[in-house]
Write a protein that binds this DNA or RNA. Structure first.
Lengths: 147, 147
DNA sequence: TGCAAGTATATTGTGTGCAACTAAATTGCT
DNA sequence: AGCAATTTAGTTGCACACAATATACTTGCA
């Protein structure tokens, strides 16, 4: 990680990227059982969290928040629509814009999701301050990679 | 992040999981252009890194190192075989075991990959010690989530 | 020795990610 | 007003992730 010329620099265990990738996958796997009762995948849960905050949002703004594009979001939103958690309507002023809104049923899911963050913090077995500093470091890295 | 009863606790921006997920995706996207010349995807690059270290490994051991299962690895390894980067043979002693070894061509890729970690560190725009502590925090979290 | 239990990999099906492309509506400029 | 450039979503194709299942081989034990 420090010296590019060092022997073994190009080694799996030396790569931050790999640890980040594995941890993110592990996190998603850990969420899966908690989300089963809500019939949501991990990404669908992230989308619902945005909708619980915003009520109505278009695909572009949603993609910007989640760092994802329409190729990922369009089919996902159709699946959420099929489940009855969201509505997909078009803006009256601009027909290009697809407005995503949360349904009554989708809104009710929020109640059931209320204790998920707590449970995950528990599963992480880490102190709050350590999680916060990890989050801050990731945010800095993310910002640097995406500008 | 701290107080489960706090208003807005169940909010996208409060979730470590989301930042981790976005950062991991962003990292993968950042690698893609660097890996284009090697005709490798990000995950294929991780697999090749293991093979540059090990020369020969079976699918189970590879999966353990990468925290992935055969459902992900088998098709990926077939693609690497098609590219001519690895061989997929069976163990003589135990016919169930698939032995993956790196080819001459695959070995040569290592030369071209030599400067990728350096370039990524540069893209991250972060100090080495900060990257190291981020890596350590992720490792702790990963270990906690996977035992 | 024979066969149940266990192990290693492969297959199938669903759901992401993302690049490249298409379609349709809007905006801006002359 | 008219049309090119832009914007917003959607589509397509490929490569992951991963749960569930299938297949083939090996081991252990009665």
């Amino acid at each position: 990680m420090i010296d590019p010329d060092k022997e073994g620099y190009l080694t799996l265990d030396n790569q931050l990227c790999f640890v980040l990738y594995s941890t993110s996958n592990a996190m998603s796997r850990s969420y899966q059982p908690l989300l089963k009762a809500l019939d949501l995948t991990y990404l669908q849960y992230l989308v619902m969290m945005v909708l619980w905050e915003e009520q109505v949002i278009n695909v572009k703004a949603l993609g910007k928040k989640l760092h994802l594009d329409s190729g990922t979001l369009t089919p996902l939103l159709k699946r959420l629509e099929t489940k009855g958690y969201v509505n997909r309507t078009r803006s009256q002023e601009d027909e290009r814009i697809r407005l995503i809104s949360v349904t009554e049923v989708g809104e009710q899911l929020k109640e059931q999701a209320q204790h998920i963050p707590e449970k995950m913090m528990c599963l992480s077995k880490m102190e709050a301050d350590e999680l916060i500093s990890l989050k801050a470091a990731c945010e800095r890295l993310l910002a640097n990679l995406t500008d």
